[in-house]
Design a binder for these strands. Structure first.
Lengths: 301, 301
DNA sequence: TAAATATTAGACTCACAGTCCAATTTATTC
DNA sequence: GAATAAATTGGACTGTGAGTCTAATATTTA
């Protein structure tokens, strides 16, 4: 995507924040970003498409920031999760995302509707997977329901708290409150055994695309965890852990992971007699190769 | 409101259900309902205003049906509440209300926005008051939060269950599920003492208008309850209860309560030596007078 | 430098909301 | 039942904004 196009998106975003999406005409965008109508329609086939490009851009950033919070942290730590949610809300606020979303929550444009639905589902899946990290596999059957309820509680509380407190809503407080509730709900619902939706349905909603960037990141994370376990009580455990941490950090939280560093780290892990489990290490290497492939494909666009 | 106007609303509603609100042009409505543009703008100042009239009509009906479910029932019975919620959802479905709402959840028309916001708040207040009936005064500080969370859980579960099951979503099941959750949540949140919003804030949101029809209905209900308590162990308790039940039914659940019946019932209650508490009876009579005033005002429109 | 490509400005079409008004129909009053 | 008042009609007219198209101009690439 070229610079000019980016610039248009940026300017349009400013206008959307100022006067709302619907109230901003294409002419406004042309004037404000200094391009001609012809160029605009060369970039985007409609205002809706511009909006989608904007959403994509913001969410890409959000996903990255959100993952950074997980670096070297315990994925099961619910406080990290709470921080991620807060980040989410902050992004929403600074970008006026909620309002923008609401303005187009139902439009006549099937593409846009599809896009938004997909966005919601991706959020839901992310929540579900984080809940798996946090509550563990044994709660799995209840975690899609829980993700749905969590979203409902959080969003409704946000809405009415914003109504009560205006711009200075205490996000932190609302997130903590909602998290506490959902913890109890998961407990309770697991005890009662009631379920509304089976998590498996998500694969129908979002065809898994098991080689997606996200999926690979998860797999790499788990492979690393496995290797760390393998090295337990090993004489060089500390060294291995350090190497593995570095590997993960460089891979998952850098825009352009440096291949040579990854390569040398991997050889370091392979060296040493009585080293790590060969199969597991091999698996990790293959995942990393796949990950590179995906990265390159994404970069091309 | 004249018949013709009603007819237009009805035809427009059909069009909205078929092709959606936004996709229906005013010209469509004119053609379909066989009136001229001039007349349309004589009735409504815009398509939005027509929509508001439609919402009002539907909700008036809903409120009535909803109240009928309470006739002679224990207000604290949570099953009645569940039935009311189911009714709510059924109305939503047959009228495609949810979709209609979503289409205009954020518009450029401040009037419409205001109207919708008010609708949401009225729903919330109703829920809160029902929760007061059900969970009792001692849980009061947590019941606004609970109403918000209940709405969030229910609406989100509905949304994703509809996605999973299409048109044949089992409303009953989802309502029961959500009700069970909220019961536990209220328990838990009361135990922990955590509160986000104080119920008092609702008076800022919806200036109370303490003589509104709804408010009076509640007061009458409570006054009747009080009188029933007074007559406890009284020799004629059964007769008094019957009279009071009749009074309430005729007053609150009939379109045009028959004054002479109310009058004679009241005298019957007043007669009998060692009768009911005079003050409480007097209070009820005044409430009934107020109620009549409001009814007449409403009728005029 | 020539050819390919991107960009421009603005005229044009189309659809729809909303205004206005003179002519006609329908309802009300005496 | 005639006179008056009120409601309704139909269509012309204005305005706005989306989206198309094109000939002219500028920029990039080979």
């Amino acid at each position: 995507m070229n610079d000019r196009k980016h610039h248009v998106i940026k300017m349009a975003h400013q206008l959307f924040i100022e006067k709302g999406f619907q109230a901003t005409s294409i002419q406004d965008i042309l004037d404000y970003s200094g391009i001609s109508k012809g160029t605009f329609y060369n970039y985007f086939s409609s205002k809706n498409e511009l909006l989608m490009a904007l959403f994509k851009k913001i969410y890409k950033q959000l996903e990255q920031d959100r993952n950074e919070l997980l670096v070297g942290q315990d994925h099961a730590d619910i406080n990290i999760f709470a921080q991620q949610m807060e980040l989410n809300l902050k992004t929403n606020r600074t970008n006026k995302l909620i309002t923008l979303f609401e303005e187009v929550i139902f439009s006549n444009d099937p593409d846009l509707n599809q896009f938004i639905k997909r966005g919601h589902l991706m959020m839901l899946r992310w929540l579900y997977q984080r809940f798996l990290d946090i509550f563990g596999e044994e709660k799995q059957p209840y975690l899609l329901d829980a993700a749905i309820m969590f979203l409902g509680i959080l969003q409704h509380q946000l809405k009415y708290n914003a109504l009560a407190h205006g711009g200075n809503t205490d996000y932190r407080r609302i997130v903590r409150y909602s998290v506490k509730r959902i913890v109890k709900i998961v407990e309770e619902v697991a005890a009662s055994g009631e379920q509304l939706l089976q998590p498996a349905i998500m694969e129908q909603w979002l065809p898994d695309n098991s080689n997606s960037r996200q999926a690979l990141q998860r797999k790499i994370h788990h492979a690393t965890l496995q290797l760390k376990k393998d090295s337990n009580h090993h004489v060089q455990q500390a060294k291995y852990n350090e190497l593995l941490d570095f590997l993960q950090d460089e891979l998952l939280h850098t825009k352009h992971p440096r291949k040579f560093l990854i390569g040398s780290t991997l050889s370091a892990l392979e060296s040493g007699k009585h080293g790590l489990n060969k199969d597991h290490l091999q698996q990790l290497k293959m995942l990393i190769a796949d990950y590179y492939k995906v990265l390159e494909e994404t970069q091309e666009q």
